[in-house]
């Protein structure tokens, strides 16, 4: 009997949520293209962090060609010490990309915890926690970052501290809003009735359902952290030599813009391409994972 029933049905393949999202993402050309650009840039950063030689020169190796423009020998030209700019830009991706992802990680951990507590507890705790975020959120990010980052100390730690401090609040608000909505659903009531404690309900039932919007928000956190780092480094309040990020390279290039525009141009191009790709990917992911809040239609 069973065999005859099965014969009439198409075999249904189980599709995971990730697979489903990816299939939908493929249908948005700009986002799909951006996805691969992001992968490529991250791959470059990882390989460079692992010490794989991606360029014939090392990032701090002085050659005899001082301040030459782009050529076959030096794809992006060289700086005033004869260091190959291509090698330096590739090396710089390490720090820029890492800062973007670490900031997103901090935003995820801090923001989700804070937002989950606020949203799940509700009531007075929620009002208190969110009032704090509202005040801090209304301050301009760059102002806070300059104040905190410079005072904590220049360097990678200082800038990560400053970026982390401003970036988690958006995630916290988002998670709180999601949880406030989700906790009224029936499956939460069922979980409560079956005797599960608050922590389990948040971790197993609420957060997994809120993951879509969170991932979208984090996709936008990475490029904004990269932009902030490069901007701070550019005005001399972020990283500085001997650290090497796209921001410090651009900052060095700015001083000789008049005669050697390539020194500013190439690092800027990499910042732009990376941030643009993340933004396009984020727009695409929003359509795929979080259709209710999308900014773009059609």
């Amino acid at each position: 009997m069973t065999a005859s029933i099965d014969a009439g049905l198409e075999p249904v393949k189980a599709v995971s949520r990730v697979e489903l999202a990816f299939t939908r993402l493929r249908k948005i050309p700009s986002a799909y293209f951006a996805f691969w650009v992001v992968c490529l840039i991250c791959l470059l950063a990882i390989l460079s962090a692992l010490g794989v030689p991606l360029s014939p020169y090392s990032f701090d190796q002085a050659t005899d060609d001082l301040l030459v423009g782009p050529s076959l020998k030096h794809l992006m030209g060289t700086d005033e010490l004869g260091r190959d700019l291509f090698a330096r830009v590739i090396y710089g991706s390490r720090l820029s990309i890492a800062i973007g992802f670490v900031t997103a990680g901090v935003a995820f951990l801090l923001g989700t915890t804070y937002g989950a507590i606020s949203g799940y507890c509700g009531g007075k705790i929620d009002t208190l926690l969110m009032r704090g975020v509202d005040i801090a959120y209304s301050l301009p990010d760059l102002l806070v970052m300059i104040l905190v980052g410079v005072l904590v100390g220049k360097g990678t730690f200082g800038i990560l501290f400053a970026l982390g401090l401003v970036s988690w609040m958006g995630t916290a608000r988002l998670v709180r809003a999601q949880l406030l909505q989700l906790k009224e659903e029936e499956f939460v009531e069922a979980a409560k009735a079956s005797g599960q404690d608050g922590f389990t309900i948040v971790m197993k039932h609420l957060l997994p359902n809120a993951m879509g919007p969170i991932i979208v928000a984090l996709t936008f956190t990475v490029p904004s952290a990269i932009l902030s780092e490069s901007t701070l480094s550019f005005i001399g309040l972020g990283l500085s030599a001997p650290e090497c990020s796209w921001g410090t390279l651009a900052s060095d290039g700015w001083r000789s813009l008049r005669s050697y525009p390539h020194l500013l141009g190439f690092p800027s191009l990499f910042i732009f391409m990376t941030v643009l790709s993340f933004n396009c990917l984020g727009d695409g992911l929003r359509d795929v994972l979080d259709p209710r809040t999308r900014l773009f239609k059609g």
Binding site: S230, F234, W254, F272, L276, N279, C280, D283
Partner: peptide, 14 residues
């Protein structure tokens, strides 16, 4: 406009 929000201010300025 997507490109516009992806460019750092200093790049536009320069």
């Amino acid at each position: 406009s997507t490109a516009g929000i992806s460019v750092p201010g200093f790049v536009i300025g320069a």
